[in-house]
Amino acid sequence: MFGLNLDACIIDLPEKYYTLHDYEKGVARWCPGCGDHAVLSAVQRLCKEEQLPPEKTMFVSGIGCSSRFPHYMNTYGFHGLHGRAFPVACGIKFRRPDLNVFVVTGDGDCCSIGAGHWIHAIRYNMNMTVLLFDNQIYGMTKKQTSPTSPMGTMSNTHPHGSVLPPINPLLTTLGVSNVSFVAQTADWIPSHLYATIRKAYEHPGFSFVKISMRCPKFMPAAVDAKVSDKEHVCLLTHENGVPVDDATGRVFSNHLEHDPTDMNQARQLAANEEISYLGLLYQNKAALRYDLYGAHNLNYTPEQKIAAINQELERFTV
């Protein structure tokens, strides 16, 4: 055509342009008003914006309301065991650098039954986007205390109020060696939610996003204050942080310039129990990545493998 060699001048012509519809599957069965719906929309938008091939995209989850997420994505999904999303996701990513891996987990799944895996997944720092849906309560099993429930939370397991202070997922994550990305956002600020997940997706490593989440059914009080009382929300701003658009910046008028390489300040902000700091708390793109180790010796030929085994057998031959 026009004497042009198309092969030479068009570098990467996509076979297909994916629309939002290409990432949708079924009808989400979360309660009306549940924050999970907002995250689903944001993630589907991200997939479309990034044109992620559905067959190269993986959602791995554990058990809980949040963990139903993969069922609503028209990608590959792994809805596994309670607390065990991280080992599965790491196993998937280990030898499959070509797959975009997302982990969807909840406060019970990640911070209680799966806490050991959580700590080590942070340390492995494999390239995956982790969305912690933190609604501070067990929803699927109908209102039991979660490790992030504020002390005094009335639940079916603590009818007179929970008796221990909650775990702080941000502070915990920031305390683990080799941590590389920690951010916080909220389901009720869609533009910030999207921008944060996108920033996390772009990060080369284990990007941990704590999403403060509404549970209108079992935990309405915990978030109402933050939705209504904007004094308790502060947006973090920085040229390398999560971008804040004008509209969001006007609605949430508390801002703080925070350099995401500043670990000490990140920990101080994360520890603040009065104010929720939304945005990128910490990022280190240079942290060691276990997935790069996992993919360093892929695709050996049968001849190479057999030669290596034979060489090893030599040591045992008499």
Binding site: V60, G91, I92
Partner: peptide
């Protein structure tokens, strides 16, 4: 085993 299952699945 979770890691192994992830690898196998993939």
């Amino acid at each position: 085993i979770g890691f192994a299952i992830g690898s196998s699945y993939a």
